[in-house]
């Protein structure tokens, strides 16, 4: 006992110092490359910088925020972002369905299926986007080629504002399905089988068991996926930049982050870094607000562990 105490006394300070030194490297990195830019962006959002330079920038108060909120293109970008986020409920329902089917012990080759579904998630977004650009091409795309067998002349999916976003939603569902399936599959394996047995004894059918047992049991995972996909959805940008250069037909591909990018880089003279910083903080508050709303709503449907 005494030797144990001695050990703790002699080793604890050593570990603390080591831990401190180990932590100080990433903390310094975060302070310089994370916290400092974060604070600077707050400051810049109230100023009008000259290009990318801070010296000589003029204070404009809340003007940047007011200009963004009055800009029809920003309002359009919000609409586009929300439209694109329709992929979230579709993905959630579809992935839960696939995970439930894969959880059936009679299904063989589950690992292969899961791998296939997961491949898009680990693929480069640039490669995936270029592949979809080709698939959806109006003239040479495989989608329209298949439709032509049915006698249907497919549209130019990415060149027409009416079909652009539905095409992007399909791409979004395909891209995130694998990740959702893996998490739902893990959640489903953790549901206590005794609950199903007890329900069967009470005469519950498959649908009742799914709604009354499975859904509540996996609700923490469903909640995690919902929160994260809403955040990712509000930040959607890279694939739109590739699939809709310049914003796409009728600016149908102009998402909020794409608008931010244009403000900060493409149109830096008329918008500028000040407005880009203001957009980023508006986006931050939107994400924080929606996430808080999600947490507030979760009290009614997410099971407590």
């Amino acid at each position: 006992m005494a030797s144990d105490l001695n050990y703790k006394k002699t080793t604890k300070p050593k570990y603390s110092k080591l831990g401190f030194f180990m932590a100080i490297i990433p903390l310094t990195g975060f302070a310089i490359f994370g916290l400092l830019p974060l604070l600077l962006s707050v400051v810049v959002s109230f100023f009008k910088p000259v290009g990318y330079r801070f010296p000589g920038m003029s204070f404009v108060g809340w003007d940047n925020y007011a200009r963004v909120l009055r800009d029809p293109l920003f309002l359009k970008s919000i609409g586009n972002t929300l439209y694109a986020m329709l992929s979230i409920p579709v993905t959630l329902v579809l992935s839960l369905l696939i995970a439930t089917i894969l959880s059936n012990p009679k299904i063989k080759g589950k690992a292969i299926f899961r791998t296939i579904f997961f491949i898009p998630h680990v693929s480069s977004i640039v490669a995936v986007s270029l592949m979809w650009k080709w698939i959806l091409d109006g003239e040479y795309g495989i989608v329209n080629h298949l439709l032509s067998f049915l006698g249907v002349k497919g549209p130019d999916w990415l060149g027409d504002s009416r079909t652009f976003m539905p095409a992007m939603i399909v791409m979004g569902v395909w891209g995130s399905l694998g990740f959702y399936v893996i998490l739902f599959s893990a959640a489903l394996t953790n549901v206590d089988p005794q609950l199903y047995e007890a329900a069967e004894i009470d005469g519950a059918g498959p649908f009742t068991k799914f709604v009354k047992i499975t859904m509540p049991a996996i609700s923490p995972v469903t909640f995690y996926l919902l929160v994260m996909s809403v955040i990712w959805g509000l930040q959607d940008f890279a694939r739109f930049q590739i699939m809709a250069p310049g914003g796409g037909p009728d600016n149908a591909g102009l998402t909020m982050v794409y608008y931010l990018y244009n403000a900060g880089f493409t149109n830096i003279i008329t918008y500028g870094m000040g407005i880009a910083a203001a957009v980023s903080w508006i986006l931050t508050f939107v994400i924080a607000g929606v996430t808080a709303l999600n947490f507030w709503g979760s009290r009614k449907w997410v099971a407590k562990s």
């Binding site: 914003g247 244009n262 008329t270």
Partner: peptide, 23 residues
């Protein structure tokens, strides 16, 4: 014409999309 293309991005995407597509 001008130092950036913000003024073009207001109308050109619609011209190159809905207008020229006849919508």
């Amino acid at each position: 014409y001008l130092p950036d293309s913000a003024w073009i991005s207001v109308w050109a995407p619609t011209l190159n999309g809905a207008v020229l597509n006849g919508q």
